[in-house]
């Protein structure tokens, strides 16, 4: 299956609450002061992080239009 999504982080908006990493089913993320991707290979692009991030600092971007 070809993946056409990209996991994007806007560090400037992250307040480090830890919600994204706590509810990530694949332990892709780690939050110390700010969120960081630690295991991108495990990411299944489910969007659990995006829908619960209160600060809109992490999201999936569609890369469909890219060549």
């Amino acid at each position: 299956m070809k993946n056409n999504k990209k996991l994007v982080i806007n560090t400037a908006w992250c307040k480090g609450c830890g919600i994204c990493s706590a509810f990530c089913p694949k332990q892709v993320l780690e939050v110390k002061a700010k969120v960081k991707i630690v295991n991108l290979d495990a990411c299944i692009y489910c969007g659990q992080c995006e829908m619960r991030c209160p600060d809109y600092a992490i999201y999936l971007e569609d890369t469909n239009n890219d060549a």
Partner: peptide
């Protein structure tokens, strides 16, 4: 943005 709500505040969600 970013909004003034505290870290982890549910209002953002």
């Amino acid at each position: 943005l970013p909004h003034i709500w505290c870290p982890g505040c549910g209002h953002g969600i």
